[in-house]
Design a protein around this nucleic acid. Structure first.
Lengths: 228, 228
DNA sequence: CATTTATGATAGTATTACTATTGTAATTAA
DNA sequence: TTAATTACAATAGTAATACTATCATAAATG
């Protein structure tokens, strides 16, 4: 198990920093469990407050609304994945090895003993990311929230992956489009495997993650190696 | 302009068939406009009823809730795209030509004079599909709704595209995963181009559609042609 | 020791997401 | 032609949601 780390976000989707207080950390850890159990639509601050033995009003002192809490969780996740990829590719000399490892982390994140944080269960958070993450930007407020910097972490990770792609082939013309597609596909294919299996060849089993990695690697390298 | 067509769905996301009455058709056409204008979260049956000069209770006789109305709209869209692809590829002899055309329709749908239906504005519906379609299956009810057949249309179109892929190369191992990825990517890349431009090379302009088609064709054919 | 800060307790509001009932005009069936 | 069905509008009402506001108090800080 890696040493304890601290992930800090570049924006303020929160009103008060949740990492800094006991109540704040309970809000994070318990909201992860409830969103996973009920889905984001059925998740309310009232249910959360009841679960942590606090009140709605107290939760509202940390986050303006549940959407901003989701933004926080998803941003935290991308910052954490970015850190994990940096960490895991650190000593790999070959660009292909680095991209391989990055894709493995992208699909596998939350399954292994990556760097972790005590009050966040990355495995459950990963399920939330798979099922709920597109809801953070598929709203009418996307442009305003983008200006506030709410998507800096996902953009940073996208840039990071795109650089790994360009290190393999500097002539590939769509590095960001390719990796943003792969980032979404990683989660979607796992979701399809367990809920809409006729949309994918990936089988819902203990090998789903490996199959998804295989699919993504084939997709990504076929595209990269087929340029110039 | 193609002859008027009738799209009928295989499931009953509705309580009463909206195509069969004046009020039903008004519910469909006006809900498309309001969801596009306000986003799905801000859309309510009360606002819809006010706009069409009816009442909430009357709208509830057609759809149990707004989620099922969205399921109806998105299902209708996929059935319509499937029909359009069938129509447009009908006389093309070469498998690559057919797959090309299918990808063009996928990205372009709603921009051209495809087969249409009087009370549905396909261009506006297309914007809804881009921004809201993943919300139909990213819910806790996905398995129950899948059993009800709510996703038959998207699955059918996925199967259709996968067959076109296999006609090009029968040895490609992930036809469904590839086309479900492409279906999502088509919409996502257009959305990113206009709201999160650093996630893609596609520029928000009158050429965004063409650039997306280029990207997708490169992605799909690289993968297909790199097998066996 | 004074004061700020964090939280809890409680109350209240507007909106949402419905359900139920009733009256009536238009269709359809006998 | 009349009787029965249906489609819809009008109205009322409920429980839950998504907040906002106020006040008291305990704990931390200066």
């Amino acid at each position: 198990m890696a040493a304890s780390i601290h992930i800090s976000l570049k924006h303020k989707s929160y009103l008060r920093e949740p990492e800094s207080t006991e109540l704040g950390r309970k809000i994070i850890s318990e909201s992860i469990k409830i969103i996973d159990a009920l889905g984001f639509e059925q998740f309310t601050f009232k249910k959360l407050a009841a679960e942590i033995g606090s009140t709605e009003a107290s939760v509202y002192r940390y986050f303006e609304n549940k959407h901003k809490l989701l933004v926080y969780l998803i941003s935290w996740y991308w910052a954490w994945v970015d850190y994990t990829v940096t960490f895991q590719t650190h000593n790999l000399p070959d660009p292909r090895q680095r991209l391989n490892k990055a894709l493995e982390v992208l699909v596998n994140a939350g399954q292994e003993d990556d760097p972790n944080v005590a009050y966040i269960d990355e495995r459950i958070l990963y399920r939330i990311v798979v099922a709920e993450s597109s809801k953070v930007y598929l709203t009418k407020e996307v442009d305003a929230e983008n200006k506030e910097g709410y998507f800096l972490e996902i953009k940073k990770f996208c840039r990071h992956l795109a650089q790994l792609v360009l290190a393999v082939n500097p002539d590939y013309p769509y590095p960001h489009a390719l990796v943003s597609t792969a980032m979404e596909a990683a989660h979607q294919q796992l979701y399809f495997a367990s809920h809409l299996p006729s949309l994918t060849e990936i089988k819902y089993s203990q090998h789903a993650v490996e199959e998804t990695i295989q699919f993504l690697k084939h997709l990504v390298y076929s595209a990269i190696d087929n340029s110039k």
